[in-house]
């Protein structure tokens, strides 16, 4: 590399090149934008537009049979506040979330710890086995489990045979058990993908850290509690977030497994929205959109409260 120097040795600082205007840059580098265009069009059409549209629809009275709706302000939100079935679906979704996410994250971590051990035999086989349900379509899983969990199915049959229950149980079709059946099937179906996340996370922990803990005389539990777990916390946050989002997208499974019934006992918010938008005698697109928007807002509110709570707890315990 050559540097031009003045006679006194100071480097020459020529005139700084003029910065191109935004318009000029766009004109010169048009092909960059061209290559971005498909992504922008796709993202705009299938993500941004539906998002914005659902907000707009939420302010319309729009019977599904009409070509357009009429603006009614916040009337749809007003009605939702008094709609028992909306709140029923809202709480069902929250219960689903609160039970299923810790279950999925925790079970997957436990399995990952076992499958990450050198001594565990057939690790590849078991990883494949746990991952298989992940690649099975949710709707198919729902249909199959309808048969497995009904009163004449093998699960109920085994319970009756073993004497644990006197009468056959329709797990997915009884009000007391339908939502929990959905949770159990959902956790089973998606356990494999969370397991993979955890296995990847565990492999980022250097082996010498484990060896050091062993040399220091830490048992398996203490090693996990004081060495492994702290190093997994960043992954825990991400994995929990991913699973939380997934727990709010359970339509295919729940629709085929229980269809929200019986008596709305397992109706999660997505089924409420679908029923309102497509299943009603007069479909109400505006009302369904308002339900989606309100649920989104309430979920965000809960997330913010949760985040604030965690920060407060950390500060209080001095672990921040």
């Amino acid at each position: 590399m050559t540097t031009i120097q003045q006679r006194d040795g100071a480097p020459v600082t020529g005139p700084r090149p003029r910065r191109r205007s935004r318009l000029r840059r766009m004109r010169d580098d048009w092909w960059i934008y061209l290559f971005l265009l498909p992504t922008l069009v796709g993202y705009g059409a299938y993500t941004i537009y539906p998002l914005v549209a659902s907000w707009w629809y939420a302010f319309l009275d729009w019977p599904g049979f009409a070509a357009t709706g009429t603006f009614v302000g916040i009337e749809n939100f007003d009605r939702l506040m008094d709609d028992e079935l909306f709140w029923n679906a809202f709480w069902n979704s929250i219960v689903f979330l609160v039970i299923s996410v810790p279950l999925r994250v925790g079970l997957a971590l436990a399995l990952a710890l076992v499958l990450n051990r050198k001594k565990t035999p057939f690790k590849g086989f078991f990883r494949t086995l746990f991952f298989l349900p992940v690649v099975t379509t949710g709707a198919i899983v729902g249909i199959v489990f309808t048969l497995l969990l009904d009163a004449s199915g093998p699960v109920s049959g085994a319970l009756v045979w073993s004497g644990l229950t006197d009468t056959p149980v329709n797990f997915a079709a009884e009000a007391e058990t339908s939502l929990y059946s959905g949770i159990a099937v959902w956790v089973w179906k998606w356990l494999g993908i969370t397991l993979i996340y955890w296995l990847a996370a565990l492999q980022t922990i250097p082996a010498d850290v484990h060896e050091a803990a062993m040399i220091d005389g830490a048992g398996a539990w203490r090693e996990f509690r004081h060495v492994t777990l702290p190093m997994l916390v960043p992954f825990l946050v991400i994995i929990t977030l991913i699973d939380t989002v997934a727990a709010l997208n359970v339509f295919d499974l729940m629709q085929t497994l229980t269809a929200g019934g019986p008596s709305f006992s397992s109706e999660v918010i997505e089924i409420f929205i679908f029923r309102t938008a497509f299943g009603a005698t007069v479909p109400q697109l505006g009302y369904a959109s308002a339900a989606a928007v309100l649920f989104g807002l309430l979920t965000m509110l809960i997330a913010v409260v949760q985040a604030v709570g965690i920060r407060w707890a950390r500060r209080r315990t001095g672990s921040a």
């Binding site: 019977p63 049979f65 079935l85 329709n170 079709a173 009884e174 009000a175 007391e176 019934g261 019986p262 008596s263 709305f264 006992s265 009603a280 005698t281 007069v282 109400q284």
Partner: peptide
Amino acid sequence: VNSEMRDVHPNVGEIAQSVLTGSA
């Protein structure tokens, strides 16, 4: 009027379902 009417729940079928599945 029918177009203006909103669905009312639980309706007869949903009530029958509740009764037959033991939740009412």
